[in-house]
Each structure stands twice: as structure tokens, then as C-alpha cells.
């Protein structure tokens, strides 16, 4: 194996331009795949986070009797799984929404926002129970409507499903491209190093002995190609994030994250594996001597 590794290193060094071109092609393909994975991973995190947020906003009707409101708050506080109940008057809601920002919006009337009760439910409470509670609350006379994150989570779920399918299709295309690029590179390398193969054959090298360095070169190409793609992607991601960090976090309620380590490791391993397969495919017919 050490000898094969040494010969693979020698081959990479001797044909570095050819291999560099191949690595760049692979990196482009893997950047596409990595970007798709990045979107899918962050959408998944967002869905998980929104799914875990058991928050409901119970909007009260104008002129709801204070006793009814107090009774409702008290009942909710005693409900199992409810962590916090907070009453927001129209003024509180207006202040929370506008803050100290826009003077034009400050001209809105005091009762522009409805009074509401904000309910935080513990994450371990099943979604079905939360939904049942929401249905009951919606039937109370003082309640105008109840809003939860459920609908948003459902929409995000379908978006994530679509994204996952698209990423899967893209992955297949990328895998095909990687195999084709590595196999072509290996065929070309084999043609350029025909004498080397002839010599190996003549001194009694087995098929495995001849093929192994080429397959290893494929592994290096695939792994380096995917690693380069990840480096490019990381650079782009953190540059964009640095410029739009606050806005993104505020918009999504989540700090966008780069690909997790297991995904990075899997991408590099996949690159190496595809490189090995491509190398083996490219060497299906070795020069016979």
C-alpha cells in the first residue's frame, strides 16, 4: 500500500496540471451540492426551531370584559404544559411592535393593536394537545382569534421537502459529473503514462498493483475537490453572514449555521469514494502488454 501511495503521489506530481483541472471541475460541482445542502440544513433547523416553539397569541375582542380576561389568564396558567402566560394590552402591543423606531408609526392610535394573551407552551407538549387547546380557546366569547406557528411550520415543512428532493436530484447530477470527470482524467492519465503501465506489466505487476495508484489518485481528486468546494462555500457563507447577520437572524428567528461537521466529513468522504469509483471506471480496460 505504501508503494501504491508513493506511486499515486508521483503520478499526481507528474500530471499536476491535469489533476488540478479535474479538482477545479469537481469543486464547481461540489459547490452546487454544498450550497443546496446548506439551504436544506438551515431550513431543517428553522423548521425544528419553529416546531419546538409552542407559542400561541390569543387575540381578544375589543371590549372584552376584564373579568373574562382575568379568568382566562388564570385558567391558562393552571393548564398543564403551559410555561408562561402574559397579557398584552393594546398599548403594550403597540409599544412592542413599534419600539422607539419610526416617528410616523407613533402617530397610530393607541388602540391600533388588539389586546392579546401570549401563551408559551413547553416544547415537550405534543402538537396535537397544543392544537386542541387552540381550538378550545377560539370558541371562548372573549377571544377574537388564536394564532400559532403551526401553519408556518407546515409551510416550511413543504418547502423543506421540496428542497430535499431538489438537493437529492442535484446530488445525483453531481455524483454523475464527478464520476465522469474522474474517469476521463484517469483515462487521459493512463494514456499519458502508457509506458509506465507497460513497464509494470512487464515486470509482473498484478492488475491490482497497476490499478491501485490510479484509484488512489481518484480518491485524492474527489476528496480535494470536495474539500476545496467546502472551503469556497465557507468563505462565501461567512462573508455574506458577516454583512447581513442581524437582519438574517431577525428575519428567520434563527442564526444561520454552516454545514455541521458530520455533513462536511460525509461530503469529503463521498468525494473520495466517488473519485475511487471514477478512477476504477476509467481503468476498466488497461493497456494490455
Amino acid at each position: 500500500m505504501a508503494g501504491s501511495l508513493e506511486r499515486a503521489k508521483r503520478g499526481l506530481y507528474a500530471e499536476w496540471r491535469l489533476h488540478a483541472l479535474s479538482v477545479v471541475s469537481l469543486a464547481v460541482a461540489f459547490v452546487c451540492l454544498g450550497a443546496a445542502l446548506l439551504v436544506v440544513v438551515n431550513l431543517h433547523d428553522l423548521k425544528e426551531r419553529w416546531g419546538r416553539i409552542g407559542r400561541a397569541s390569543v387575540y381578544l375582542k375589543d371590549g372584552a370584559p376584564p373579568q373574562q380576561v382575568e379568568a382566562l389568564v388564570s385558567a391558562l396558567k393552571q393548564t398543564e404544559g403551559v410555561r408562561e402566560v402574559r397579557y398584552l394590552s393594546p398599548i403594550d402591543a403597540r409599544n412592542a411592535a413599534l419600539g422607539v423606531a419610526d416617528p410616523t408609526l407613533k402617530a397610530l392610535p393607541q388602540d391600533a393593536f388588539p389586546a392579546s394573551i401570549e401563551v408559551d407552551v413547553a416544547p415537550e407538549v405534543p402538537e396535537a394537545e397544543v392544537q386542541a387547546m387552540v381550538n378550545k380557546l377560539g370558541q371562548l366569547p372573549a377571544v377574537d382569534g388564536v394564532e400559532t406557528y403551526g401553519t408556518w411550520t407546515a409551510r416550511l415543512g413543504s418547502l423543506l421537502q421540496g428542497g430535499t428532493i431538489a438537493a437529492g436530484a442535484l446530488a445525483l447530477i453531481v455524483f454523475g459529473a464527478v464520476l465522469a470527470v474522474v474517469a476521463s482524467t484517469m483515462r487521459l492519465a493512463l494514456t499519458r503514462r502508457r509506458t509506465e503501465v507497460e513497464v509494470l506489466r512487464l515486470v509482473g505487476a498484478s492488475d491490482g498493483f497497476v490499478r491501485t495508484p490510479y484509484v488512489l489518485e481518484g480518491v485524492f481528486q474527489g476528496a480535494i475537490g470536495s474539500a476545496t468546494a467546502l472551503a469556497i462555500l465557507a468563505l462565501l457563507f461567512f462573508t455574506v453572514k458577516a454583512h447581513a447577520d442581524g437582519d438574517l437572524s431577525g428575519l428567520l428567528g434563527l442564526d444561520p449555521a454552516f454545514l455541521p461537521l458530520p455533513v462536511i466529513a460525509a461530503m469529503i468522504a463521498t468525494g473520495g469514494l466517488l473519485g475511487a469509483l471514477g478512477g476504477a471506471l476509467g481503468l476498466r480496460k488497461l493497456t494490455a502488454v
Binding site: T195, V203, G204
Partner: peptide, 21 residues
Amino acid sequence: VPFLRRNLGIVFQDFKIVPSW
């Protein structure tokens, strides 16, 4: 066949050496 060739030394007119090695 490789085992056969390991028992033979072969020399050619065109040398068949790897120039980059």
C-alpha cells in the same frame, strides 16, 4: 501471467523505461 513475468527479465530495443522516474 504476472507470476511468470516475475521470473523473467525482459530488455527491449526501445528500453521501456519511465523517463519521469
